[in-house]
């Protein structure tokens, strides 16, 4: 067992973990932040996407030890208190979710897309950029709409993901 210090959603945690602990296990089991989900074991579904030092990462494919010293934002840290992040709001407004299981990863990826590609996103770009996130409920139609709208709203001065800054 070794100590890992990570800042998660702005709060520093020092946790004793076994070397084989994945970042997602640290988040879900040690910190009990269960919004980050695990939907596959081949690093494809993206339900586990979080931001590490400001960029989207599949937390099921990173050792907790490797995250030592990093700043992590999970879905729980995206809203500013009770004010939802514009991307969260856009997913609700455009019915970009059904069962909700892929949603945290989708939203974290969507925010990352905007951080990288800006706020004017066409449908083709959004679909391409969602390559690493699988949804079984929505057929992606409304997710694509939500990401486009969320991106525009983020430009409108709303605060992007907290990590990284």
């Amino acid at each position: 067992m070794s100590n890992v210090t990570v800042t998660v959603n702005g709060k520093s945690h020092t946790v004793d973990v076994a070397p084989e602990t994945l970042l997602v296990e640290l988040i879900r089991e040690k910190l009990r932040l269960t919004g980050t989900h695990v939907g596959c074991d081949t690093s494809q579904c993206g339900a586990c996407v979080v931001h590490v030092d400001g960029v989207a990462v599949k937390s099921c494919t990173m050792l907790a030890m490797t995250a030592d010293g990093a700043s992590v934002t999970t879905i729980e840290g995206l809203a500013n208190g009770s004010a939802l992040h514009p991307m969260q709001e856009a997913f609700r407004e455009h019915h970009g979710l059904q069962c909700g299981f892929c949603t945290p990863g989708m939203i974290m990826s969507a925010v990352d897309i905007v951080n990288r590609k800006g706020s004017d996103l066409d449908e083709h770009t959004i679909r391409d950029e969602l390559e690493g996130n699988i949804c079984r409920c929505t057929g992606y139609h409304n997710i694509v709409k939500a990401v486009a709208a969320g991106a525009k709203a983020m430009k409108g001065g709303a605060k992007p993901a907290r990590a990284a800054e």
Partner: peptide, 21 residues
């Protein structure tokens, strides 16, 4: 009507079986 259940799903506060310990 926008969905009532979405608040917990978009904030990561849903309660799926594997979230329960």
């Amino acid at each position: 009507v926008r969905r009532k259940e979405d608040q917990r799903f978009i904030t990561g506060t849903g309660n799926y079986t594997s979230d329960i310990s």
